[in-house]
Design a protein around this nucleic acid. Sequence first.
DNA 1: GATGAATGAGATTTCATTCAT
DNA 2: TATGAATGAAATCTCATTCAT
Lengths: 204, 204, 204, 204
Amino acid sequence: MQGKTTDKRGEILDAAKAAFAERGFARARIADIARKISMGHGTFYRYFNNKLDIFFSVLDGIFADIARVVADEDPSSTNSLEEYRGQILRVGRRLYGMFLADDRLAQIIFYEAPGVDPELDRRMDEVSAAINRYTEAYLQNGIQKGFLRRGLDARILAKAVDAMIFAGLRDLSASRDKEREAERWLDAVCTLMLEGMGTGRNNA
Amino acid sequence: MQGKTTDKRGEILDAAKAAFAERGFARARIADIARKISMGHGTFYRYFNNKLDIFFSVLDGIFADIARVVADEDPSSTNSLEEYRGQILRVGRRLYGMFLADDRLAQIIFYEAPGVDPELDRRMDEVSAAINRYTEAYLQNGIQKGFLRRGLDARILAKAVDAMIFAGLRDLSASRDKEREAERWLDAVCTLMLEGMGTGRNNA
Amino acid sequence: MQGKTTDKRGEILDAAKAAFAERGFARARIADIARKISMGHGTFYRYFNNKLDIFFSVLDGIFADIARVVADEDPSSTNSLEEYRGQILRVGRRLYGMFLADDRLAQIIFYEAPGVDPELDRRMDEVSAAINRYTEAYLQNGIQKGFLRRGLDARILAKAVDAMIFAGLRDLSASRDKEREAERWLDAVCTLMLEGMGTGRNNA
Amino acid sequence: MQGKTTDKRGEILDAAKAAFAERGFARARIADIARKISMGHGTFYRYFNNKLDIFFSVLDGIFADIARVVADEDPSSTNSLEEYRGQILRVGRRLYGMFLADDRLAQIIFYEAPGVDPELDRRMDEVSAAINRYTEAYLQNGIQKGFLRRGLDARILAKAVDAMIFAGLRDLSASRDKEREAERWLDAVCTLMLEGMGTGRNNA
DNA sequence: GATGAATGAGATTTCATTCAT
DNA sequence: TATGAATGAAATCTCATTCAT
């Protein structure tokens, strides 16, 4: 659409993403970002207002990517535990695939972004909350359809489930055999969600 | 033990904990910390080598507190799901109580510490891993004792469970009725761990 | 004369005059000037060498306007105090009229130009000196013709008189009823020049 | 009173006064000021908030010096033209003496301060106005006592007189034999104020 | 031990100017 | 001739750390 301008902006964003992932917000220098793409560092300021501005932009991009994956499924479309499990795995695999494809995402989201700026912390919490609401809608659907138990604390459970999924994303970035580890995580999350770990024999 | 020195060191640590929680590592100034306890900021360097040093010390203190709570129970002491649930709740309540008693813990652990220093990130991951191992021991005990299902991916599930518990700690800091919210979190985590959310009727 | 080029140059000069009056030399940006006339800011450099160059040009224009007004009268044409007063008022009214018609002149001359560049300061002093010499010629004429007292320190008095006239110009830019204020200034200057403020009764 | 601190602050102020007089506000660098007194440039910021802050401080000092000279006489103490002339000469000589003793004053006041900052321009105008009011009080006293003519436009004339005095100050800084030139200026100003330049024979 | 004045490395940001198109 | 994207010099300001007292 905007041709070159967009390309350059995208180029800078990508270099910044790398710089922030490598060094964190405080230690990454504008000059580093510029050097990565052989650009005068003054040029940076033609595309972004300041350092915080581009950090927000990098994160907005990541948030948008996550939102796209999460919002791609319809919470009310599943009618059984089995279908639900399938849906979880589908979303999970796409999400995990996205993070596997780009190491920098986990680094930035989990390590570099927190604490940089109060407004950014707020925005991250907002994104979390939005995802939580989405997950809660899935749970409500399951309760309504009868394949999830009545009386579940859907609001809290949604947060708990999301926390597990994101813990997996974080854990992955430190793993060797990432694909296999991802599968194990998705499997474990499904297990906990649907069946728990108990034998059912609640006798002692 | 060491009399005054220890007191002063503790005083500085406490002021630093507050400063780091309020402003984050980068924005907290050594002079701020000193001013909080009416101390010349030069004196700071008699007790700590540098800014990063005290940040590590603050976090070591928090880690130790957490470890004390976590390690207070014996993983092999439970023999039934019911006992296990009791144990989870006991540990959980102490952990949640600790974070409820001091807002700064969650702020520092979840928002301010990540990304400050690679070595610190490593150490936090280490602490996480230690807790994970502990949790895994609980799970292994349950499997052995037969009240948790065979074939569970204990390593991953331990991480997933811990992630939920820590997500609750983070969530709490933003809540109003913290005590009640804490109970809901513990309840939800127990539910997922032991029973999952499914109705068991896996018919579709 | 030179057609389009001259027009464009004039357009730029006018935009620059406005920009310098509004923001001062340091804060006015070349891009501002260009934007005012919907011109690419690179084009600026086809007409002027650099920022200082156009500032000099703006001031040269103002100096030329002033010179035209001042030099319009013949210092030796007056033969009486009354004629001299008339001449002062004529020149004064044209000068004040010029500054009243364009607020930017006073702003630039009195507030923005000083201190920008040593060479420019020198040039302004030169213009002042030229005006002073002109005024001195008037005084010398009056002394010769006998309607000004012998023994006057014409060189200094010329500067003093010019200082008053320019103080009026500066003062005007802050006034409400500028026309009326201008008349009061001219009147006051004439009074001081020709009669002073004393009652003549130099008894004590 | 405050011992060393005051000394250092004074030292910095003096170095800054020199730097601003030599290079002007924009071109003077904080590092220059610091180097002049063999001080680390970071130290500067222990005594002044920023560059503009010290410029204001330098000017406040100059304003205070001027005010002290101007306010040292009582406007209502003179009863005759002769006494008034004496008073003008006394104040004038002190003022001129002050500027003769320190070249930098005229340079800063007349060349470097204007246009640096709108607030500063306002403050300079305020100082001017205060001096004008003082002068006006002298004139009103003279009118009341009868040694200045009734019907004079005291407000404007006060400004005109002050303009001459300050023009002399400015002119002095470019002169060779400054003492002699100062006397000529004071003499000329007195002449214009009290007697004007006319022969009195307003016949043609 | 305690203090706080002094230090200077270091990074952001601005904007006049250039130059390829 | 006109354009505006790109450039990088330059200077402010912060604050952890040192060290003389």
